[in-house]
Design a protein around this nucleic acid. Structure first.
Lengths: 368, 368
DNA sequence: GGTTAGCACTCTCATCGGTAGAGTGCCAAT
DNA sequence: ATTGGCACTCTACCGATGAGAGTGCTAACC
């Protein structure tokens, strides 16, 4: 069923104002499904033929006219069939769609793929994106799970072959970030003294006990209390945490862009340009995080419901995974508004719960 | 000048067999440059007009006919202008193109962008891709620099909040890879004993002294000599090294796909599908690594010269960076064969040397 | 009253002939 | 060797035409 948490980004017209007759519901559903399938405006005759409606085309025509008056369908031109409007899709998704959970078989197949792969988180993410993309024939986006507020876990200072020093910071949520240390600053901090790996280790140990579990601002306050070397590294660590606090587009996994490229509505090519650019920009996904995180479950954003102008011709089906208080990630698909929602929504939902499992008690047997 | 290392992937016809007259050279160059600019077949009249050739169109026509006989130009149909063939581009790139080094101004601008950004390697890569893409109006690909043979540097075992254990491995080249440890195996290895962070640290210290500088096969041989916990972690570490030995597509940065999508030759959209898919596959870049690495400098692969069928309609301009014996990365652009080579080649070359600098003696002042 | 058949009307899309224009190839003249 | 000239070819464009799909309306029907 389509529970709460499926409402659109913008305030969708409240359902109560839109009481459709049974016939209208049937017709709207048929129009949406036919259009999703064939990408061509659908006429009254074709509808009765293909969907075994028990009424004549004339009746369907009048129902269509009513739906158009309600703003759920639209007319490319006088003598073409009807096309669902964004609002039409919305109603469809909220109350017309026969949403199934994913086939048992599909579930098992997906699980199987995950069980085959080694335990690298990145490989999970890539795999998730790939599965989403192929099974919904849309573009898929998967972000790694990140704590909303990054916390210090463990730092290690490593001396590389070429005398450069590397700070490796393990965050509280298990993510790892790294950063080369500026050699000049280090030399300055150590007052010209030669530092060996042993010195680095003791410095790291001090930091680890002093900073464990702290967030960026808390760490900032401690900088002053450290020795010169410690202060410098602490400063760097604080920066690293701050960067982790903002979702970086850096390691977002996408897949299946070619799928949506093939859709007839984007044949021109240039229509997708804006979308692609937005996808690359980090702020877009950043905006999504709080919305999805708060809401939980699958969120569908259809065409103009998207605040972003470039996305007015596409729909998003997204869900968060992970837990809000520990690490939170995003995953979902992007496609034309003419998207196979009944397929996309369960798939996204299933993958979200699956990633959840993997993230939390991960090596556990694949029960469900 | 176009030095060695510019020869194509397949054995291009040796230059000596193709002695062009001066006129042919001029005409071929003009045809290529005009076609690159306008994407429309170019006729004899247009050529003399636009390029102030000192001869009549009839003369140009006969030169064109000769070039066509040599296989350097081709004819979409009887009464259309000429279009360069892959071979025509090849000759152009090898000996006709006026290749300049990058403008001083451009160089400075690029350097400036790099100096603004923080010292994260990933940010460098992303920036490089972005610069390549915008300045050549093609798609850009940048892979991280990886040692051909990964070596053990330093390992750290970290206990996470949820009792999971993480192995963080710093490679000899400064790259960091991580892996969650399977809880069940750890419990087994530790014979049910509770392990604290202190135990993990000592275990890591043992490994660090025993394995420093070793490669995967060398480490494999040592597994047996470790204690139960050590053996398990050593095994995992060996796996991580092995994975690093193969270029993973995992963190390849691409940018500007939209640029090539807009090119008229890909208007259909579906033509690019194959290309996109190949780009996502790791083996494609893997194949490139040894070729580019051995050769050094910029390599241009034009249309059918590419071994990969899906890439027959695009050209690649790629260069390695880093040093062959330490860490080696790839960067370059992908565009239609009708690519602005005189712009792309110097840009790729400059970025390759720049990345080189950044990787090796990196924080150094931005002299050049 | 809801449903249906019928019909006139509208609009798109594919087709077709005709034409303009670009470009070639060849030949004869320079 | 180069060039002007010319016949020829092919595409792209334009407008007209007709078929087809689909609508909206009305009058009949149950």
């Amino acid at each position: 069923m389509v529970g709460e948490g499926m409402t659109g980004e913008r305030n969708a017209p409240s359902r109560s104002t839109l009481e459709l007759t049974e016939r209208q519901r049937i017709v709207l559903r048929a129009v949406v499904e036919d259009y999703v399938l064939n990408a061509t405006p659908v006429g009254s005759k074709a509808l009765v033929d293909r969907y075994a409606l028990l009424v004549s085309s004339a009746t369907v025509r009048s129902a269509m006219a009513e739906l158009e008056a309600l703003g759920l369908l639209s007319h490319p031109h006088t003598s073409a069939g009807r096309v669902p409007s964004d609002l039409g899709y919305r109603i469809y998704v909220e109350s017309l769609m026969r949403e199934s959970t994913l086939d048992r078989a599909d579930q098992l197949m997906i699980r199987h793929q995950f069980s085959q792969v080694q335990l690298t988180t990145n490989e999970w993410l890539r795999l998730a994106a790939s599965i989403l993309a192929t099974s919904t024939r849309s573009a898929a986006v998967v972000t790694p799970a990140r704590a909303r507020r990054a916390r210090y876990g463990h730092v290690q200072l490593v001396e590389l072959a070429d005398k450069a020093r590397l700070a490796v910071l393990v965050l509280g949520d298990g993510n790892v970030v790294q950063r080369r240390l500026d050699r000049a600053s280090i030399d300055r901090a150590s007052a010209g003294q030669q530092l060996g790996q042993a010195d680095l280790d003791t410095a790291a140990a001090t930091l680890n006990s002093a900073l464990a579990g702290l967030s960026a601002p808390q760490i900032r306050r401690k900088v002053a209390k450290m020795g010169p070397l410690g202060a410098h590294v602490t400063e760097v660590v604080a920066q690293m945490l701050e960067e982790s606090d903002s979702v970086s587009v850096e390691d977002v996994f996408t897949d299946g862009i070619a799928n949506v490229l093939e859709q007839p509505e984007f044949a021109g090519g240039s229509k997708l340009r804006g979308v692609l650019e937005v996808l690359q920009r980090s702020d877009f996904l950043e905006q999504l995080v709080p919305v999805l995180g708060r809401r939980g479950g699958v969120t569908v954003i259809i065409g103009h419901e998207n605040v972003n102008d470039a996305m007015h011709e596409v729909s998003l089906v997204f869900a968060p995974y992970g837990t809000e208080d520990s690490a939170l990630g995003l995953l979902g698909v992007l496609g034309p508004t003419r998207m196979p929602y009944p397929r996309a929504i369960p798939t996204v939902r299933y993958l979200s719960t699956l990633m959840n499992e993997l993230i939390s008690h991960h090596p556990g047997e694949t029960h469900d």
